[in-house]
Write a protein that binds this DNA or RNA. Sequence first.
DNA 1: GAATATATATATCAATAAGATATATATAGC
DNA 2: GCTATATATATCTTATTGATATATATATTC
Lengths: 183, 183
Amino acid sequence: MQTECICLGLLTTGPKSGYEIKQFLSGPLNQIMSLSFGTIYPTLNKLLVDELVSCKQKTQEKKPDKKIYSITKKGEKWFKKSLMENSVEWLRSGNYGDQVKSEFLMIILFSEFLPKETRELVINERLLFAKQILALLQYDGPMTSTGAQLRNTPQGSFLRGLMTNIISSGITYIEQNRNKLGK
Amino acid sequence: MQTECICLGLLTTGPKSGYEIKQFLSGPLNQIMSLSFGTIYPTLNKLLVDELVSCKQKTQEKKPDKKIYSITKKGEKWFKKSLMENSVEWLRSGNYGDQVKSEFLMIILFSEFLPKETRELVINERLLFAKQILALLQYDGPMTSTGAQLRNTPQGSFLRGLMTNIISSGITYIEQNRNKLGK
DNA sequence: GAATATATATATCAATAAGATATATATAGC
DNA sequence: GCTATATATATCTTATTGATATATATATTC
């Protein structure tokens, strides 16, 4: 999926700045997709030139100015068309639509070369992190910009449920089988 | 984790060509890590210059020549040192050692803009693919170069088990909840 | 009280990596 | 005979990351 489509898709739920898009992709959605500032800002500029988004400068007190991007009607049309025409092709690309790079699991694969203490530290930290993500997914308190778009839609609940399910069963497996890794 | 370390780590289980490294990372291990040819070949050349690997040209009948790379003693030392010194730092990088880009889950997030038929097709294809990965993970027949290194070591069995567990529970969740996505 | 770290916000650039293409040969299927 | 796929390496353009720069305010630590 092109970066353009990802940004446009996120903008369908309401206007956002580049910083807010990054924040959103740094929350629970980071388990699904990540983009860096170096990708987000040039993409928004490109979308602006192509008139798929519009931009309002918002002066903020005590903070740098915000550029709020909104998807235009032209942008919505383009996004929906692109999604319909390409989703099957995107799905079939690469590892059937997934590209995963897990430092953690590579360290585990190579952990025979690691002292027991380091291996245990790595596993403990990772479990802690996974439990933090779970807490974030299950959080139902006041809305933060970070978690907002994963709520109130069937798609958001589906994804939250799926992530919760996968992460939980991963934690259980690691806790029950970590002893098999070691001396 | 640097590409250098990944290649060296994979070479600790025996000499391999660049093509075989790519094959290995295109099997079940693709759920954990992926590298392209444009990354693998330059990395192997760099490792050769630094004398962390050695190379034997192998002329093959009816096929292009193979360059078989072996990790050197210098390479083993460097790899183990790097792993020990950096694994905790690698783990803490980015999304705690994970970088995921899932076209499939982004399509699901945006699926309100998709006709029901396309959404169903995407989910069906993805479930089929997941089940193929499961079969590959559970395969215990004659060894292929692709699956070899995930066997016979505690680390390999641990990862195979973890992947099986996560993928299975993902499949179950999708099958039981896909109806909640639709009209 | 001063120094440091963190958060908000955008932008750019070097280094890295992906994806496409080129080259060459063999086999398998239609 | 034609096309697709598999083996094998290499290169090149494009895309992306990760680091850095800039600016200001707040929170935390010494």
